[in-house]
Simulated assay, not measured.
Amino acid sequence: MNASIQYLNPAEAARRLGVSAKALRLYEQRGLVVPVRTSAGWRAYGPDEMARAGEIAALRALGLSLAQVARALAGDPQGLAPALAAHQSSLEGQVRQLAATLEKVGGLRADLAKGQVPTSAALADLLGSGPSLAFDLPWPWGGERFELNAIRPLTYITGPLGCGKTRLALAIAEALPGAAFLDLERAADGAAAARARRAGDPVLKARIDQALAWLVEDGAQDSDALIALLVGLETEGPTALVVDMVEQGLDEATQEAVIAHLRRRGPGARPLFLMTRSCAILDLAALGPDEAVLFCPANHSPPIQVAPYPGAPGYEALASCLASPEVRARTEGMRATRPDAA
Rank of each mutant, 00 (worst) to 15 (best):
L108I: 07
K114G: 08
V117P: 02
Q88W: 03
L112F: 14
Q78R: 15
A74V: 09
L98H: 12
E92W: 01
D111F: 00
K114P: 00
A86L: 06
G93N: 06
D76Q: 13
L112Y: 14
L91M: 12
R109E: 07
D76H: 07
P118C: 11
D76V: 05
A83L: 06
G128Q: 10
L126F: 02
A99Y: 03
G128F: 09
L80A: 07
Q88R: 15
K114Q: 14
L91E: 07
L98A: 14
P118T: 09
Q88C: 08
G128P: 04
A83N: 00
Q97P: 00
E92L: 07
A110N: 03
A110I: 01
L126N: 03
G93M: 08
R109K: 13
A100H: 10
A83T: 01
Q116W: 11
G79C: 05
D125H: 04
Q94I: 08
R96T: 02
R109L: 12
A124C: 09
G115K: 13
A121G: 11
A99L: 12
L98D: 10
H87C: 06
D76Y: 09
A72P: 00
G75Q: 09
R109H: 08
Q97Y: 02
L73T: 04
T119P: 06
A99N: 13
A99W: 04
L91P: 00
V95A: 14
P118V: 08
G75N: 09
A113R: 15
H87V: 05
A122H: 05
L80S: 01
Q78M: 06
A99K: 10
G107N: 03
A124Y: 06
Q78L: 07
L102F: 04
Q94A: 06
S89T: 11
H87S: 10
L126Q: 03
L112P: 00
L102W: 05
L123H: 05
G128S: 09
V105T: 05
S90I: 06
A85T: 02
G106D: 14
D125V: 01
L73M: 14
L98Q: 13
Q97L: 10
A122M: 11
S90H: 11
V105Q: 07
G79P: 00
L98K: 08
S89K: 13
V105F: 01
P77V: 03
